[in-house]
């Protein structure tokens, strides 16, 4: 699927967070890097209509996010940085079912889809656990599972490994690599970008570099650190 941004500007109050961005994304793996406050999160939130552009348009598969936010969100899954705030229901199984209920999946199909998704990640044993009692890595896996169970065509991940220890980082990296879907990954974890098709470097609300990881990562290290 294709995400097209046409001269998009986003302001929060008097502060301009993104300046006149034009982009077209259709690659299977796109990385977005940049210093804190460069506008990464805002850019990512444009892709599923959580943030709407002040000027310009964002189209996902031809759907305008300002008009069809709901239809867009059914196609674009979003994994947040902090799973503590993303897991919204008290029991793991209920949390996975939440999105399915919202999208009108027939009630009798829900348990099976939840079960299959948990098994796919090897966390079926967590199904009946209270979500607050999970470890950091388990929480991030559940957060990812609760998005993937909705079968989005594209997944946006906002710094999925930032809050994790080394071992869990590897678990999540492997899970991200194995995603059959298209993915846009925001990260500070430059190793994650190996094998990506395209990397955007953001700074001060503008795309300052756009290319293959082999050129973009060294460019970023040289210019932004």
């Amino acid at each position: 699927m294709r995400i097209v941004l046409e001269s998009v500007t986003v302001r929060f109050g008097s502060r301009t967070v993104l300046h006149d961005i034009g982009l077209e994304l259709s690659e299977s793996r796109v990385g977005v890097i940049g210093p804190n406050g460069s506008g990464k999160s805002t850019l990512a939130r444009l892709f599923n209509g959580l943030v709407l552009p002040g000027e310009g348009t964002v189209r996902v598969d031809g759907l305008d996010t300002s008009e069809d936010a709901r239809a867009v969100r059914e196609r674009v899954g979003f994994v947040f940085q902090n799973p503590d705030n993303q897991i919204v229901l008290p029991i793991v199984r209920e949390d996975l079912a939440f999105g399915l209920k919202n999208t009108g999946v027939p009630r009798r199909e829900i348990p099976e889809r939840v079960e299959r998704q948990l098994e796919h990640f090897g966390i079926a044993h967590l199904a009946d656990r209270p979500s607050h009692a999970l470890s950091g890595g388990e929480k991030q896996l559940v957060a990812l599972a609760s998005v993937l169970v909705m079968r989005p065509d594209l997944v946006v991940l906002d710094e999925p490994t930032t809050l994790l220890d080394l071992r869990n980082r590897n678990v999540i990296r492997a899970a991200v690599e194995a995603l059959p879907q298209q993915a846009v990954v925001l990260t500070h974890d430059l190793d994650l970008l190996t094998g990506f098709d395209r990397v955007l470097v953001l700074d001060g609300g503008r795309v300052v570099h756009d290319g293959k990881p082999r050129t973009a990562v060294p460019w970023y290290v040289e210019h932004c650190s």
């Binding site: 939130r45 599923n48 959580l50 709901r70 969100r73 059914e74 899954g77 979003f78 947040f80 902090n82 705030n85 993303q86 919204v88 939440f98 999105g99 209920k101 919202n102 999208t103 009108g104 609760s146 998005v147 909705m150």
Partner: peptide, 13 residues
């Protein structure tokens, strides 16, 4: 953040 996460998963039904 919680509200954004809830919205992102297509709430309200």
């Amino acid at each position: 953040d919680i509200a954004a996460a809830v919205d992102a998963r297509c709430y309200p039904p």
